[in-house]
Design a protein around this nucleic acid. Structure first.
Lengths: 193, 193
DNA sequence: CAGACGACCTGCCAAATGGCAAGAAATAAC
DNA sequence: GTTATTTCTTGCCATTTGGCAGGTCGTCTG
């Protein structure tokens, strides 16, 4: 089975080879999620831990007025999971939807736990995923506080250009914490530069 | 040794009793942090995992212009740690400072890891701390996007009134993502209600 | 092809927030 | 107790962002 991307990703996070590595990746199943399909729907309890090899996904929830708010974009070579719903097995308030056809490798919560108990290396990997995701989130929160909407836009387009190919602008807008109107104006100014 | 608060906190997060519990809490040392002392300073590598039984702490960093930005407030009965610096053993960009005299229980990174390996219960507890902290942070990020500054203020004063007793308003302002000027105006309006 | 729909842009005005500077109030220093 | 320092508030005006409504463009459907 060809899981090179998964192997490379794991090894870029923790040092592991040989049978310990084989043992880990054998527990992952290849999985395809078609465009517009949901990886997780609000109201459900998340059951999957998913490495996204190729494609793009969007996480969103609803504010008190019922509007969609994009909370995250996932690009290729990233780990996809909703931390509360998966690890606390609670009902999700978030949706995660494929915005392109997606390919990757999946492991269920049950298998994940078995592997946590049997493999110290995978345990370390799991902790690393949590920690890194958390760090990325802190970074984003900080940007919402001390950067302008325009800077956040420039930042996103520079680091995640891929997202702009597939995501709708109104979804990018709510991710940036502004309305589609403001994003449109920011883009007009940005083009001039 | 009287560690009731710590025991109660651990048990409110995971089911554990008897020798497994004793084993865990025996690894914690009582620790006091005086007002204005730093639990963590930027430039350092964090080495402590701290349960705050009594007191108040503030996390802050600096934006590119050198201004302080408050990233978090910790009140009593909370776990205090900086995820990236502690778990990835990287140089911290964040400061965590006591804003009152603080009392609690501390464990070093080394001991923490030993305990992770030897105690499945503590492992689960550690994961739970990560997951819950992450969830709280996601909630906060969402508020920055879909709530007004005034709503965020009301929310904070309702859930963490204790913080207002000790923290400076300019620190609260940067935590809320606004200037002290705006916070002052919001407070003026809020009092009228 | 015609019509319907959704995504995006734009103009107008209103509301929220920031920047700056001065003053009032609280706190610390001597 | 007086002075010095810091914190907080306020007024004035500029800038950013939002709300709304209308217009364009492309896509889908029949």
């Amino acid at each position: 089975m060809a899981k090179e991307a998964l192997i490379a990703f794991i090894q870029s996070n923790i040092p592991v080879w040989g049978s310990a590595l084989t043992n880990i990746i054998d527990h992952f199943d290849k999985r395809t999620i078609k465009k517009n399909e949901f990886f997780l729907k609000e109201g459900q309890i998340s059951n999957d831990y998913f490495f996204l090899e190729e494609g793009c996904m969007r996480a969103f929830t609803h504010d008190p007025d019922g509007n969609e708010v994009t909370t995250f974009f996932y690009a290729r070579n990233r780990y996809v999971f909703e931390v509360s719903s998966l690890f606390m097995q609670t009902v999700s308030t978030e949706n995660i939807q494929a915005i392109t056809d997606c390919h990757g490798y999946s492991i269920t919560f049950e298998t994940l736990n078995k592997l946590f108990h049997s493999s110290p290396e995978f345990r370390e990997f799991g902790r690393m995923m949590l920690v890194k995701s958390f760090a990325v989130f802190k970074q984003r929160t900080l940007e919402l506080i001390n950067k302008s909407a325009e800077e956040r836009y420039e930042n996103l387009i520079n680091t995640d250009r891929e997202i702009f190919k597939y995501a709708q602008l109104k979804h990018i807008a709510s991710y940036l914490g502004i309305t589609d109107t403001s994003l449109s104006r920011i883009r007009r100014e940005y083009v001039k530069k």
